[in-house]
């Protein structure tokens, strides 16, 4: 299960926490009298994710008729999700669902595992991203370069004008 892609259910850290809480609710109700998995999934996850989760259960060979097996699987699922690596990303735009999907796919393809994202929108980054992973920062934003360019341009402009101004403003001393 460690290599499983959960991007169909969540992308971000808050989404994963929400999903785990709902899985925990389902797990708590497995042994209740009159437990109906489909109805419970429908209520907790919604129609679309319910179907995907049922497929997920079948792919993992979970017997839906065995409450014990189902509960064990759900508990193990929670543990797996809690161990997923968290990547803190600062970006300059508000990501859409498509952006999150793109990110998840990239990590599954390139890092061979799913990452959970904690995204912070900071427009002053301009473009690119600042990544924080395992306590280390990596700045790939356009902000620093842009500021340097603007500063260079400003300095060139001011230096070209100031010597003329200073000559005219300096009072003559006798």
């Amino acid at each position: 299960m460690e290599q499983t892609d959960f991007s169909e259910f969540f992308h971000t850290r808050s989404e994963s926490s929400n999903f785990m809480a709902r899985i925990a609710n389902i797990s708590d109700k497995v042994f209740e009298t009159g437990f109906n998995l489909e109805k419970t999934l429908d209520r907790e996850l919604g129609l679309e994710k319910k179907d995907k989760f049922l497929v997920f259960l079948r792919e993992n060979n979970v017997s839906l008729d065995s409450p014990k097996e189902l509960k064990d699987f759900l508990d193990k699922l929670q543990q797996t999700i809690s161990k997923l690596p968290i990547l803190y990303i600062n970006i300059a735009f508000d990501p859409s669902e498509e952006t999150l999907k793109l990110l998840s796919e990239w990590f599954v393809l390139n890092a061979k595992k799913q990452f959970v994202f904690d995204i912070l929108v900071k427009p002053d980054l301009l473009a690119g991203a600042v990544l924080n992973f395992n306590g280390r920062f990596f700045d790939y934003s356009a902000k620093t370069k842009f500021e340097k360019i603007v500063k260079n341009v400003m300095n060139e402009e001011l230096v070209s004008k100031i010597p003329n101004q200073q000559q005219s403003n300096t009072p003559s001393t006798n």
Binding site: I89, I91, A92, F93, S96, E98, T99, L102, L103, W106, F107, N110, A111, F115, P123, L126, A127, G128, A129, L131, F133, R136, F138, Y140, S141, A142, F146
Partner: peptide, 27 residues
């Protein structure tokens, strides 16, 4: 500058950042 960049460009630049991070062995 921020307003002149489209969503697609932002996504592309984001992926470029991830590519650089991957090349540097961040992940």
């Amino acid at each position: 500058f921020n307003k002149s960049i489209s969503l697609e460009d932002h996504q592309k630049l984001l992926i470029d950042s991830l590519e650089k991070a991957k090349a540097e062995g961040v992940f």
